[in-house]
């Protein structure tokens, strides 16, 4: 077999592999979509109605008409956006310091921040639940937001440091010669220039907050304050096989915002993530 033939065989094998991989990753979501578009009768016809004969949007209308679900979605959006903003406020100055200043134990600090991520949220939730209960922060969005911030802040600090590293130091120096101090140079020069890094860090923590389950499940018991991650779990517990199409629609509603946010900024997010992971 000559080289060109071997390459062509390789192409065929690549296509087969990619097809299998595509089927594996796409099938669960396509199946979810298919179920969500079916009527109750068609649900029980299995794969033969993969494309429903009488597709209906009724399941979505039912889900989105209930105040409960709108509330879940609103709470999730509020919690994840507020915590993402809080996270930036905490992480940006630290990321700037790690990128620009030389100080004793800097490497150790960076590693400490990274290794904090090894601690399972479950471990810290055990004592945190008690404190929060003692100072009356359970059943508040404020308490939950603070924990979300703490969980996202290590990753976000690393991402932002990587992005600030990419801005030449001479720009800070020029700004400081022109009369800025460190802080105004940071606010007026560095912040505007690191918008892509800030945007991806923001979206990463929003998506992280959107998928939170443990923290709100433990801290929030009032239905009116519950975000979608917990809402969908409780909803799933109350559904049975005869309303699976409603559960599918509800599930899709909870998943789509995260997917859309990710796809919109895919390039930015991947760049920021791999920069951190590959550098270690």
């Amino acid at each position: 077999m000559n080289a060109a033939n071997r390459e062509r065989l390789g192409d065929v094998l690549s296509y087969i592999f990619m097809l299998v991989i595509f089927a594996f990753f796409a099938w669960p979501l396509l199946w979810l979509l298919s179920l969500a578009l079916r009527t109750r009768r068609e649900v029980f016809l299995g794969v033969s109605r993969f494309i429903p004969k009488n597709p209906t949007l009724e399941n979505f209308t039912l889900i989105l008409q209930s105040d409960k679900f709108i509330g879940y979605l609103y709470n999730a959006l509020k919690l994840s956006c507020l915590s993402a903003i809080g996270c930036l406020i905490v992480a940006l100055p630290a990321a700037y310091a790690f990128s620009r200043f030389e100080f004793k134990g800097k490497g150790a600090w960076m590693m400490a921040i990274l290794s904090v991520q090894m601690i399972s949220p479950l471990v810290i939730m055990v004592p945190l639940y008690r404190y929060m209960a003692a100072i009356g922060l359970t059943d508040t969005h404020f308490g939950a937001t603070m924990v979300y911030i703490a969980l996202a802040v290590p990753t976000v600090t690393w991402i932002l440091k990587g992005s600030i590293d990419g801005i030449p130091k001479t720009l800070d120096e020029a700004a400081m010669i022109d009369g800025c101090n460190r802080f105004t140079a940071f606010v007026r020069v560095i912040l505007p220039l690191s918008t892509p890094g800030i945007a991806s860090a923001f979206i990463i923590s929003v998506i992280g907050g959107w998928s939170q389950f443990l923290v709100p499940f433990l801290l929030i018991t009032k239905e009116s304050l519950t975000p979608i991650g917990v809402g969908i779990f409780q909803y799933a517990g109350t559904q049975n096989d005869s309303s699976i199409q409603l559960l599918a629609a509800a599930c899709l509603v909870s998943v789509v915002p995260a997917i859309v946010a990710f796809l919109a900024l895919q390039r930015l997010i991947l760049g920021a993530m791999t920069a951190g992971a590959v550098k270690g």
């Binding site: 991989i21 595509f22 979501l29 199946w31 998928s211 969908i232 096989d241 699976i244 599930c251 998943v255």
Partner: peptide
């Protein structure tokens, strides 16, 4: 992109989706 979309799905929703796939009923 397809693989990455699966990655963005929240854990709870992922569990519910797979429960539907693994279900032994006709759906």
């Amino acid at each position: 992109t397809t693989a990455l979309i699966a990655w963005v799905v929240p854990g709870i929703a992922g569990g519910i989706i797979w429960k539907m796939l693994f279900n032994e009923a006709p759906f």
